[in-house]
Write a protein that binds this DNA or RNA. Sequence first.
DNA 1: ATTAATTTTGCTCCCGCGTGCAAATTTCTA
DNA 2: TAGAAATTTGCACGCGGGAGCAAAATTAAT
Lengths: 340, 340
Amino acid sequence: MPNDKKPVFEGNITADDVAVEAGVSRWTVNRAFRKDASISSKSLEKVRIAAEKLGYVPDLRAASLASDRSNLVALLIDDFANPHKLVMMERLTRILRREGWDILLVNTLDRADAGHALLNASQRRVDAVILIGIQFDDEVLDTALHARRFRKLIIFARTSRNPNTISIAVDDVHAMKEIANYVHERGFRRPMFLAGPRTSSAHLLRKETFVDYWRQHFGSEPETVSVSAYDPALAASIVETTLVDRNKATLPDILVCENDALAIGATDVIRHKLGLRIPQDIAITGFDDVPQAEGANYRLTTYRQPLTDMAEYLVKVLGSEEDRDFDRLFQGKLMIRDSA
Amino acid sequence: MPNDKKPVFEGNITADDVAVEAGVSRWTVNRAFRKDASISSKSLEKVRIAAEKLGYVPDLRAASLASDRSNLVALLIDDFANPHKLVMMERLTRILRREGWDILLVNTLDRADAGHALLNASQRRVDAVILIGIQFDDEVLDTALHARRFRKLIIFARTSRNPNTISIAVDDVHAMKEIANYVHERGFRRPMFLAGPRTSSAHLLRKETFVDYWRQHFGSEPETVSVSAYDPALAASIVETTLVDRNKATLPDILVCENDALAIGATDVIRHKLGLRIPQDIAITGFDDVPQAEGANYRLTTYRQPLTDMAEYLVKVLGSEEDRDFDRLFQGKLMIRDSA
DNA sequence: ATTAATTTTGCTCCCGCGTGCAAATTTCTA
DNA sequence: TAGAAATTTGCACGCGGGAGCAAAATTAAT
């Protein structure tokens, strides 16, 4: 095999090399790669050609080191069993990248691991940390803030009352009231609320809102069940053990789920293990509007979060130098389908 | 609210500060944070205390710049509609992080975007690039390799014949033969193969293998249909338009799908739009063994990829300094459930 | 107790690029 | 076309830490 030499790694083409090739100074070369620099079109062109020829690409590590801006944000995620995480990641990574932000992905195993995950991020000197997880309670946040190494700590798709974090989320209270009202008006009277893990803080207000609504309108507490993770499989087994022995009279007429991950697991088990029909025997609602909620199998009535708007707002926050309160709640949309 | 001052960002605690505090030189401080450095336990302790007090954490950008090792790998992903991607990401991020690798996540929009994604990675001087996507054909790979800026280019969960890349994947041929053999032995005679997008290269050998098997054993080509993305919703609509007008005689007796994403979409539409039963009217097989394949709803017969083993091998490859052929095929496991 | 062997520590010289300013060009004005 | 105004360019210095070696401090050996 002649002429099939393996490409060798050679990462040492620096701005100096390009400068010599183009006949300008190193600083002019670097300017050519910064969008805000003042440079004549003539030398820009010279640099471009030389860089192209040598295969030069600026080293962002060095740029970051010198400028104290990394253009890197850390994305701390857990809860990978929840299909909605895939949607969030897709949306965030796409929009962040479009705006010039690179992303450090950190899989945060559990609460005890959150500190290490944060450490990871701080060692890379990220400009901001985005939390898309359920393991971040006040204690963790305080630790992170105490380290004082993050310019911005953003809680995405989850509200937080911590004054030093930025929370970008859907308005859970408003949304769940809308769902509760729908459930009410459609004549359901024996709802069961299927909740996710009850973290000590920064958790969703969905359950509380629904319970309040029901108490207010009927004077009674709806039954609630909690699942220790947003995992369809786990939700399925919990729902099965909860409902398997019940007769028609004690069965709830609707299962209001904290999110689609739970609703999907519940749907599966209600149909295939309990042999009941949806929505005739038990109706179901979810939250998030994951892709499969719309599919022919689930046709799930759920609440769509305006993820794109939220992500767009997020990049706006990232780009801002101001130091004001960026917290913001978004309105989503109730998607009425066949499950309720 | 007294004493509630907002934590200020102050990222300027450097090794020099710690050195002064601990009464040692800067280099000793840095040594204290490297696991392979020779340092006395006495000064290690002094540094630890000083660093703790000042909240010092080494700057990995600077370390990377000086050592020419970033301990960063880029993960280029597309195809976010495929639920298996979430599983892959979880596994890879968990295992890579455990071994000290940080991850730069790059959402690669389409083929035209692959070059930019690669550029992103090279600007951060990642030590390796991991491709988990379908958009990376030979042309893209050649471009990437031509730039010579990556020590390792790893194609994960997909085979590549490019001699300069490292491919870590399941043995498609072996796996699909096993599936084909199962289909054959269970007496199915009118299979239809549901394939994904046909990229020009680095694609899966599943369809070819199945078609070959069938031709060899029956002398006839099985019907094949192709979906332009591994998206359950898209698969559903293609399957519907393909099968909707058929009568019992012309309907396939089994749908062999290139992966679970397609199988799931197909299942939904077969049940809920065509009103057929699985597996009595049409059986289905998938590939990947995504979480929902095991759930009560799908009970999908599929082929499980040994993702953990593959990821463990990947970190071994990353850590190796040798320059040999790291390509490797893994054996998975046929998971027989109710769908076929 | 000395000297040799070993471990620790400090230091010089980079890594590649941004900041801010002064010098050099270019463009504009009268 | 000279002189002023505006734009470009070059440069010293710094960002935070690693490699490799020489000096210093410990430990081992005789």
